[in-house]
Design a protein around this nucleic acid. Structure first.
Length: 563
RNA sequence: UGGGGCGUCGGCAAACUGGUAAGCCACGGGACUUUGGAUCCCGCAAUUGCAGGUUCGAGCCCUGCCGCCCCAGCCA
């Protein structure tokens, strides 16, 4: 391979865009993100958002945010608001280019009349069942219905009366006249308008006939002069009709080009709207924004930084191959971002008391502690120290397993940024659990280093008992332990694959005093433990933290290998 | 047994369009370390679903097979 090549390779879509620009096909590139406001956005949408807005930014064009709101029976204002919030949070800006497909209904209707007039569309009086019956199967051609050859004038009259509200839902449709024998089922006279006496969240009850996606989408793109209409693979079969509509409606050149790419699949995650809805409705999670949900709002509450999601989208690439990305790549992006940015704090999640017997009782001192070793500009803070501290249960053993370097009787460790201490013994309760640890400190090791230069193999974190803030901490893990949650045995409910330990709520956690006044959404690293974010459930004196991701944990790996 | 797509490392994904298989994640090892964190090194596809063919040369071209995904909503 050539090593001198410094230009990053373009994915196949960017290659098309670059070529079109180079060939002078378009003056500016215009893309769009066209969600239907019928649900919450998830990480799969984030891939599309990053792609569309990313291409626009990269090639100096623009990206529209457009609601594809052609079905009033499924769409709601609530979703419109959540979508805008999520796209903005991801870091993208549509400027003045916020659009609604429903604002184009008049124009779309006019084009439909044109099609009817040209004999390219007709009103069909069949029931949904009859339409289905005549459509044929995947291997058998469809059969033309009785209304197919109705005079254009009659269809036009009927269409106008459909619009006027003379007919009930489902009684008639307008269909494109293409080819009932096509191998592509989408070309067998697809329905382009249906009657729906339903109020629309954006245009109210202005209409009782609504265009179908396949008819509306190319026209929305045409109206906005979209150059590259990027969608997912399942629409590949619809592209002939997309082009048919553009052609038959006599849209001026250059025509928008539909390009399909593979949607995102993630291991240990379900992504379908149906399944996500089920999780919420059956109270298997706290809501659409549960920190375990792959929704944008869930990722936000989980504490995932938007920059990490953008980085993730860049790294997974864009292609046509069905694929499943390892969720660990997302987690890696999160760690990388947070390692650089998140201030470090000390927090003890499962506290046990450590008493330093030779430290003067009642005395306190402060140590200056670095906020982020990766970022000197983050500065330092003062942390209180005293005779009695909280340390992690996990950092103490009465009899250490092999390679365990933390506290055990006789062993010396460093209290992060404070002193070297040597364990002198542990106090156990009736059940044998360690309830208190005793140690002596080396007064000459202030700050954590001994003047004689002796080394310790371990540094542990601590919180002064007299200055601790109490908090609730929620530990999150994959909602599904299996890489492919959809792969359940026949007859088994996919929900049985849910990890019952995916949320573990810890109370009585002790945090250093600097964490007293944190605001919702603030992120930090609890040293040696992981990255955490302040949850909206926090109250004045009692913060609630969510674990975003753990730190990489070599010891956990060793422990696992040891069994 | 119709139509449309897709097969390159455990997972993503490149390969200047025929010139001698990038990178990232994961995984394994080591160095270093006041986070068992971070960082840094090393290892990880004699070969691109399979079989033939064309060519000096094939992941890229040709032929045939195999496998996987999508489509029969008045959903998007």
């Amino acid at each position: 391979m050539p090593e001198s090549d410094t230009t990053p390779t373009l994915d196949f879509i960017r290659e098309i865009v670059a070529d079109d620009l180079k060939a002078g096909k378009h003056a500016v590139v215009v893309t769009r993100f066209p969600p239907e406001p019928n649900g919450y956005l998830h990480i799969g949408h984030a891939k599309s958002i990053c792609l569309n807005f990313g291409i626009a930014a990269q090639f100096g064009g623009r990206c529209h945010l457009r609601y594809d709101d052609t079905n009033p029976t499924k769409e709601e204002m609530e979703y419109i608001e959540s979508i805008e919030r999520d796209v903005r949070w991801l870091g993208f800006d549509w400027g003045a280019h916020l659009y609604f497909a429903s604002d184009y209904f008049e124009q779309m209707y006019a084009w439909a009349e044109l099609l009817v007039t040209k004999g390219k569309a007709y009103v069909c009086d069949c029931t949904p069942d009859e339409v289905r019956a005549r459509r044929g199967t995947l291997t058998e051609a469809g059969r033309p219905g009785a209304h197919r050859d109705r005079p254009a004038a009659e269809s036009l009259d009927l269409f106008r009366r459909m619009r006027a509200g003379e007919f009930p839902d489902g009684s008639r449709v307008v269909r494109a006249r293409i080819d009932m024998a096509s191998g592509n089922v989408n070309m067998r006279d697809p329905v382009i308008y249906r009657i729906l006496h339903a109020a629309h969240p954006h245009v109210g009850d202005a209409w009782c006939v609504y265009p179908m996606y396949d008819y509306a989408h190319p026209l929305e793109d045409a109206i906005e002069r979209i150059t590259h209409s990027i969608c997912t693979l399942e629409f590949e079969d619809h592209r002939p009709f997309y082009d048919w509509v553009i052609d038959e409606c006599e849209i001026a050149e250059p025509h928008p080009r539909q390009i399909e790419f593979a949607r995102l699949n993630l291991t240990n995650t379900v992504m379908s709207k149906r399944k996500l809805l089920q999780l919420v409705q059956e109270r298997l999670v706290r809501g659409w924004d549960d920190p375990r949900m792959p929704t944008i709002s869930g990722l936000r509450r989980r504490g995932v930084p938007p920059a990490a999601i953008r980085d993730f989208a860049d790294r997974i690439g864009v292609a046509k191959r069905d694929s499943t990305v390892d969720v660990q790549l997302l987690e890696h992006c999160v760690r990388e971002e947070l390692n650089a940015r998140a201030p470090r704090r000390m927090a003890v999640l499962r506290p046990v008391r450590l008493v330093i017997d030779n430290y003067p009782e009642g005395e306190h001192e402060k140590f200056e502690v670095v906020n982020n070793p990766e970022d000197p500009a983050a500065g330092t803070r003062q942390v209180e120290f005293g005779q009695t501290l909280w340390i992690e249960q996990d950092d103490v053993r009465e009899t250490p397993p092999p390679k365990y370097w933390r506290l055990f009787p006789g062993n010396e460790v460093r209290l992060r940024s404070a002193y070297l201490v040597r364990c002198t013994g542990v106090v156990k309760d009736a059940s044998g659990a360690i309830v208190e640890v005793h140690a002596t400190y080396d007064p000459a090791s202030s700050g954590g280093n001994a003047p004689d230069g002796r080394k310790v193999k371990s540094t542990i974190h601590w919180v002064a008992a007299d200055h601790a803030v109490e908090a609730e901490v929620r530990l999150y893990d994959h909602l599904f332990p299996a890489a492919d949650p959809g792969a359940v045995p026949e007859g088994t409910d996919w929900k049985t694959g849910i990890n019952p330990a995916s949320e573990e709520v810890l109370s009585g956690c002790r945090l250093e005093a600097a964490l007293a006044g944190v605001g919702v959404g603030e992120r930090c690293q609890f040293e040696r433990v992981g990255y955490f974010v302040v949850d909206p459930d926090s109250t004045a004196g009692r913060p609630v933290f969510n674990r975003i991701v753990t730190l990489k944990d070599t010891w956990a790996r060793i422990e696992k290998k040891q069994g």
